[in-house]
Design a protein around this nucleic acid. Sequence first.
DNA 1: TAGATTGTTAATCGATTAACAATC
DNA 2: TAGATTGTTAATCGATTAACAATC
Lengths: 206, 206
Amino acid sequence: MTYRETPDIIVSRLPVYLRALSHMQAQGKQTTSSQELGDQVGISAAQIRKDLSQFGEFGKQGTGYNIAFLIGKLREILKVDRVWDVAVVGMGDMGHAIVRYQGFADRGFRVSMVFDSERSKIGAKVGGFVVQDTREMVSAVRKAGIMVAMLCVPAAVAQEVANQLVEAGVRAILNYAPINLSVPKGVRVQYLDPSVGLQRMTYYLK
Amino acid sequence: MTYRETPDIIVSRLPVYLRALSHMQAQGKQTTSSQELGDQVGISAAQIRKDLSQFGEFGKQGTGYNIAFLIGKLREILKVDRVWDVAVVGMGDMGHAIVRYQGFADRGFRVSMVFDSERSKIGAKVGGFVVQDTREMVSAVRKAGIMVAMLCVPAAVAQEVANQLVEAGVRAILNYAPINLSVPKGVRVQYLDPSVGLQRMTYYLK
DNA sequence: TAGATTGTTAATCGATTAACAATC
DNA sequence: TAGATTGTTAATCGATTAACAATC
C-alpha cells in the first residue's frame, strides 16, 4: 500500500476552518458540529468531516467538536502552534499597511524585518521597524533563519527579489506583486492579486 | 442534452492566464503556445487548451495563440473589456493602500468612491478621493449603480457593512477582512486574508 | 433510552491528463 | 513538405457526496 499524502486542496481549507472556529470561540461558543461549521464557511458537512478525518478523530458522536480542542489540533497541523518570523520586502503603501497590520497576532506570524531598496526609505522607521537595505537582505534573512516572506515590491523586480529570498533560505512567499513567480521545488508561493480576485467575479456579473 | 455551465475552477484560472499573457505582451512577444503559457503559470498545456476551448477556438495549429487576440478574448469573457467602478470601504492602512494602488488600470477596474465611518476621516482626501460617510454609502452606491466593492473594514463590522453593500446593489465583494461573509445567492465574495495565505504554506515547512 | 452526530465506506461526480487526428 | 501545435476524445485520476453503522 502506498502512502498517500494529504491533498493540497484539503490543506488549503484548513486555515478557513481555523478562522471560523476562532470566530466562534471569540463569541463564547464551546462546541460546534460539522453542519454548523460547514454553514459558516460554505462547505458541506460531509466534506468537513472527511477533511478532518485525514488527521485524526477530533469529534464525538452526538455532540460534535470541542472548539478549543479542534483549534489546537488545526494549529498543530498547520504548524501555527508557534510564531513564524516574517520578512517584508517593499515599503510602498502595501508594505506599509502590512507592517502595521495587527491581524497576524495569534495566527502564527510576526513581522520581524522589513526591507526596501530606496535610499529615502532605508533607515526610516515603519511601524516600529527600521527599514533595512534590500542589498543586506540575503545575509540578514539567512542569518536570522527566516523561512517566510511577504513580497510587496513592484512587479518589475518581484522575480529578482524572490530569487534573493529563496537564496536566503525562504521557503514560503506571500506575493502581493501582480505577477507569476517562478521558484524552485520546495518553495511555496501564495498570490494575493486584487485584480485577479475581482476578475474572478466579474465573469458572473450581468 | 443539458447545457453545462463553465465550472468555477476554470473561470478562476482565466485571470491568471490573462495576467501572464499581458506580461508576455509587455515583453514584446507576439504569439505563445499552450506549452509556454502553461510553463509560465504552472499548469499543464493540455489543461490550458481545454480551458480555452470552453469559450471558442482561439489558436492555430502549428503556430499557437496570437497574444493580443487571446488577451482580447479573455477580457471579453471575464467582462473586463470595460471599466468597473469600485467602491472602497474602510480607510485604514489597507484601504489607503488600495485607493492609491496603480495596478487596477488596464485590468478593468477604477476606484470610484471611498467610505469610512470615522468622523476624523470623513471629508478628508485619500488618493484624490473625498472620504464619504459610510451612512451615505447605500444611497450613493445604489445611485451610481456600482456593482463591485472592496471591503477593508475591521472584521467586527465586516458582515454588517457587507449587508449594506448588498442592499446597495453590489454583487461582487473583494474582502480583506479576516472573516467569512454570509451573502445571498447571486453575490460573489473573494477573500484576501494574508494569514490564510501564510497558513496554507506553513503546513509544508519543516 | 432517544436523539444527535461522528468517522468511514461506497457511489457519484467532476477535473485532469494522455493521445492523436486535423491542420496551419 | 515536415514540423509544430491545436482542439477534442477517451481514459484516468481525484474529489465530493450520500448513506449509515457506531456511539456519545
